[in-house]
Amino acid sequence: MVSLPEELEAREAAARQRVEELQAEAAELALRLERAREDLSRLEITRETVVQVLAELSAAEAEPEIVAGDVPEPDKTSAPHGSGVTMVPPWREGLVVAVLPDVYRDIVEVVADAPGPLQAKQIVPRIGLPTTTGKIEGTRGKLKRLVERGWLDEDVPGQFTLARRDPGAGRANSR
């Protein structure tokens, strides 16, 4: 017959061994998680680079030829001079939402999926942001930029919809 202290010691040793096994397993999982995060980071950077290149190509195709002596007006859609990266290119026929930066693409997709007009405060939680005043105002600014570039419409102030595409109009955006 086994005494109670011996039984407790045996159970304690078994529990200690299980804890050590789980710690080793957790360390292995942490290492695998770190590798997966590195892979994800590389893929995100690659995708962002591809989106930037596509936006640059799209913007280059949309730029009119400049006659000698003409000085173009500064483009407010571009990043600082010399970078050549258009953050939100103007919409034109054949341009897809994939050329937009992530947050703008998310906004356009949320608006496109909505059954009717949306306000900034309705969009913010749908793109994964907290509904704080700052996030709502920042999103409202992005919405206005998308309206200016022809991706969205704002027929009623503060109510945003996907831009209607009128084949006869030079701009898809109605104001």
Rank of each mutant, 00 (worst) to 15 (best):
V2P: 06
L4I: 05
L4F: 12
P5H: 04
E6A: 11
L8C: 09
E12K: 14
A13M: 09
A14I: 14
A14F: 06
A15M: 13
Q17V: 09
E21G: 11
L22H: 14
L22K: 15
Q23Y: 15
A24C: 12
E25H: 09
E28F: 13
L31I: 08
L31K: 15
L31P: 02
L33P: 02
D39R: 14
L40P: 01
E44G: 03
T46N: 10
V51P: 00
Q52H: 10
Q52Y: 01
L54D: 02
A55M: 03
L57R: 05
E61A: 15
E61I: 11
E61G: 08
E61L: 12
A62E: 05
E63D: 15
P64N: 13
E65H: 14
I66A: 09
V67N: 14
V67L: 11
D70Q: 15
V71G: 11
V71A: 13
P72N: 08
P74N: 11
T77H: 12
T77I: 08
S78Y: 08
G84V: 06
G84K: 10
T86S: 04
T86M: 06
M87W: 09
V88Y: 03
V88T: 12
P90M: 03
P90D: 01
E93R: 01
E93P: 04
E93K: 00
G94A: 03
G94E: 03
V99F: 05
V99D: 00
L100Y: 05
L100F: 09
D102V: 07
V103F: 08
V103K: 15
V103H: 07
Y104A: 06
D106K: 13
V111W: 01
D113P: 07
P115D: 04
L118I: 02
Q119S: 11
K121T: 12
K121C: 15
I123K: 02
V124M: 10
V124H: 07
R126Q: 11
G128I: 07
G128D: 15
L129K: 10
P130D: 10
T131R: 13
T133E: 06
T133F: 04
G134Q: 09
K135F: 14
K135Y: 04
K135L: 11
I136F: 09
I136E: 10
E137D: 12
E137M: 13
E137N: 12
T139F: 05
G141W: 03
K142G: 00
L152G: 01
L152Y: 00
D153F: 02
D155V: 13
V156W: 01
Q159R: 07
F160L: 07
L162R: 05
L162T: 05
R165S: 01
P167S: 06
A169L: 00
G170H: 09
N173T: 08
R175M: 08
